[in-house]
Design a protein around this nucleic acid. Structure first.
Lengths: 341, 341
DNA sequence: ATGAAAGCGCTAACAT
DNA sequence: ATGTTAGCGCTTTCAT
């Protein structure tokens, strides 16, 4: 029952005494229409309350002007904010975003089938594309852009912050406060950003002649729980450290809680630095020192890059790196008791 | 340039030596196809790697099988989680969700135009529909479902938690711990849930013969900052209270921070209870007592309700209320010092 | 500058 | 049980 859901281009044409093609020209802002007929058509459109049918346009153009954004989840602030940026930017250019949660590669494959194979979406934004095997599920022909991935020698553009530099800066901040035993809590090491942040961490240690300790580097899954567990594990092992660099704020906050439960004060006994600057970072106790990334801008750039990719398939693929800023709050402090070093 | 982007139904038909209509029947699982021809068609589909074009299906059916989800933002955990639930459930029925951020009624109107007037989406899920004047921007003809709104005498279904009961339960929890001077931090009072939670709060006070104090009820905007500012304002006014019931966790956490900065201990001096049970609730210090709502389920129900509304327009509109659970953690405690009451 | 014709890939109504 | 015929509402040639 394809119900008549409103006036069509032909109704407008009839009302304005022009061909439907002229109406098409007007609504698409194409040159070569007399100002007068344009006015007539516009009057007809206004009078009938005509709105172009987006599905019919997609059909005729062979392009749906819709993207899919595949994210590990929709709830983590970092992802959500990137998605919000991408949605906003896409809209500015007449594109739409279907954002979905693909926590593993089965769900990823399913979405690829339902969104891409069925041509409901004409391009994809993939957040953290190297979390698992999902990369191989993307046919070379589909326009895509990666977020949170290192530039690779391939035809897919990428947007990321400079994770290595950020990891380095975070660690340097701690070193400058006098810390030398610096624990490190990473994201899943399959992901580029986790690797790069750790690389920055190691470089900073190296620069200061500090020997990295394997036991002080633990892999987490970005959750507060992971941060909590890591600190417990270090305690179990009797590990010694005076600072923790967590690769995201959630893990940092989880770590802070575990430290407190062990009777360790932050930052008096142990300094903690996070990554992201989520909205709650300044409200937890103590307020979290962290590396701020502009997630909204990342999303905007991702949308922009993908639009570029679908509209100018032959243009050079872009790899963008955005800066990260150190935001010093109260969870990091200078070592006063030299004994603890 | 409608580029040939793959085999069509007719290619499959030719290969299987049947009409394209038979192919249509097969891919839609319609009865009345010989097992043998069905097999032939399926073989052809597999051989050619055919996938139905979703846009063409939408076009021919006159229904895009796409919904829009309009939320105040995409980043607050509560909204994001509802959206994730809705996306997941919609997918199970072959529907898709375009989720957008509409912080005010101008953006809301814009999205309504671009998604609904253009028939890109055939129905909407509106989160917190009474935040402003947006309700009036929804034409009666568009299938819709409201989340976080009270059932009203209208043709739009609703999903919400039982906010009045939840507000009551939260307040009772504090009263049972001996509190009588209970401050209350609401969301925007234009929203149903804020009104209902406050109503529950007032009822609980009333039941115990506690006279509510106007100065102890402050309106916030759901942000941690609002919670922080409210506590400061109370201090400026010299308000006396031994407990705070905040209508969401963000405001509760902001309030806890302000209390701490004033030298007030939570829960020794002031108890704090929140609402939502965001993932960080158990990791802040002290771990937050809160009212847990199953946001994912809310999203699922919303999607289900909307599908019902578009597929069976004449069925009775549903109004669902989901329960809320008290989760006691460490931010609330019994009053020990009777003097402070 | 404008119009006529054709078709995008599919579903739906009507044959047979 | 299968095929044939029309569209869905628009854009895109190609004429005029």
């Amino acid at each position: 029952m394809p119900h008549r859901s409103g006036p069509t281009i032909r109704d407008v044409a009839a009302w304005a005494h022009v061909s439907h093609q002229t109406v098409s020209r007007v609504i698409n802002g194409v040159e070569g229409v007399t100002p007068e007929t344009r006015r007539k058509v516009e009057a007809a459109i206004a009078h009938l309350g005509y709105r172009p049918n987006a599905v019919a346009q997609s059909m005729a153009r062979g392009r749906p002007r819709t993207f899919a954004c595949l994210s590990p989840n929709l709830t983590d602030f970092t992802f959500a904010s990137i998605i919000q940026g991408a949605t906003t930017e896409a809209q500015r250019y007449g594109y739409y975003l279907i954002s979905v949660s693909a926590p593993n590669d089965e769900t990823f494959a399913q979405w690829m089938d339902q969104l891409i194979a069925s041509r409901r979406a004409e391009g994809i934004i993939v957040l953290n594309p190297y979390a698992d095997g999902r990369r191989s599920l993307i046919p070379p022909s589909v326009p895509a852009i990666f977020v949170g991935a290192r530039p690779r020698a391939e035809a897919i553009g990428s947007i990321a912050v400079d994770d290595e530099a950020a990891g380095h800066a975070a660690t340097r901040h701690l070193i400058e406060l006098g810390h030398r035993a610096i624990a490190h809590l990473t994201g899943p090491m399959a992901e580029d950003c986790a690797q790069d942040r750790r690389a920055g961490y190691l470089r900073a240690l190296h620069e200061d002649g500090i020997t990295p300790q394997d036991t002080l580097v633990r892999e987490g899954d970005w959750s507060a729980t992971a941060g909590f567990e890591a600190v417990r594990e270090w305690a179990r092992q009797g590990a010694h450290y005076t600072a923790v660099f967590a690769q995201n704020d959630l893990m940092a906050i989880g770590a802070m809680r575990a430290l407190r439960e062990q009777g360790q004060q932050v930052p008096q006994h142990v300094s903690v630095i996070g990554f992201d600057d989520i909205p709650l970072a300044s409200y937890v106790d103590p307020a979290l020192t962290t590396m701020r990334q502009n997630t909204f801008a990342i999303g905007q750039e991702a949308a922009r890059g993908l639009i570029q990719a679908v509209e100018h398939p032959d243009s050079k693929v872009e790899h963008l790196r955005l800066p990260v800023d150190l935001v010093v709050r109260q969870s990091t402090a200078r070592i006063t008791d030299p004994e603890r070093r």
